[in-house]
Write a protein that binds this DNA or RNA. Structure first.
Lengths: 152, 152
DNA sequence: TAAGATTGAGGGCTCAATCTTC
DNA sequence: GAAGATTGAGCCCTCAATCTTA
């Protein structure tokens, strides 16, 4: 492809495969998750750290750090999820600038229902198709790519 | 993470690394592309097959097949790009149901400017950090994952 | 009926203001 | 001024409904 002048055929194929696998795999997980538990991928991601916290409540700042999301992305997502009845928002007692995000009953119930199916799906669509050696290689590669990107 | 009960620590780490690498890498490419050539990733993707076609014109059906995009996604993208002056739309002479998508001068100029920098970026952020053996492993893995997903 | 395409609604993401509180 | 958070605009994507032509 003209997009890849400067990449040889093998590299082009690997790069296209990476892009396609990324889209198909995450898309399949998203659809499956949505169908079985009614949760989008973003909703699921937000509920996980909250369900692991002491009492189902975290400062928005902590939640954002756990997810590695910026403030804006989190604020938009929390707003939508509050409207859906999965979360509550409140002010932070210790620092009036901060906000607290908490699970509702519906939110806790949703994540507890969704988690086992989601994990099974990741195993079935990803790990079941890979050898131990391939998993090791992928782990090393992703770590290296992330380290290089962090240095930029 | 509670998200990964049923995955061991090593698997969880690899999966998180996959998700993070995906987001960081594609995000970095997107931002770089946008900064240097003013094209989004989606716009770039659409322009590539058109720039490789005979006269810069393809049936929407062909373009969608080349990108592996569904009709709706392509129609929305073409509409935005037509508004930006990168593409033209017309009716298909051979089949009145079809539509023809063509490059404008601005579109051709944009892709020709963007392509070398984009390829260099993919090389710098991805292939430069991988050994030959790792590239082979990744190629095989992505092919296998895609084949498995296609069978579902 | 099926194929090609378009549209509107709605979730999701990023960027650039903005507001409040430290 | 800096930190925590929110908001609005704009692009991207998917889904379902619709319209036209084959």
């Amino acid at each position: 492809m003209a997009a890849h002048r400067g990449l040889d055929d093998r590299e082009t194929h690997v790069w296209q495969g990476y892009l396609a696998a990324q889209r198909e795999l995450l898309g399949a997980l998203e659809r499956q998750n949505l169908r079985e538990s009614g949760l989008s991928g973003a909703e699921y991601a937000v509920l996980v750290p909250l369900s692991e916290s002491e009492d189902g409540v975290l400062r928005a700042r902590e939640l954002g750090a756990a997810l590695d999301w910026d403030r804006s992305r989190l604020a938009h997502q929390v707003r939508r999820m509050e409207k859906r009845g999965l979360l509550t928002r409140g002010v932070c007692a210790a620092d009036a600038r901060g906000s607290m995000v908490g699970l509702t009953e519906a939110g806790r119930s949703a994540i507890e229902t969704a988690a086992p199916a989601h994990v099974a799906q990741v195993r079935r669509c990803f790990f079941d198709h890979l050898s131990d050696a391939e998993v090791d290689t992928l782990g090393a590669v992703f770590d290296r790519l992330l380290a290089a990107l962090a240095e930029e």
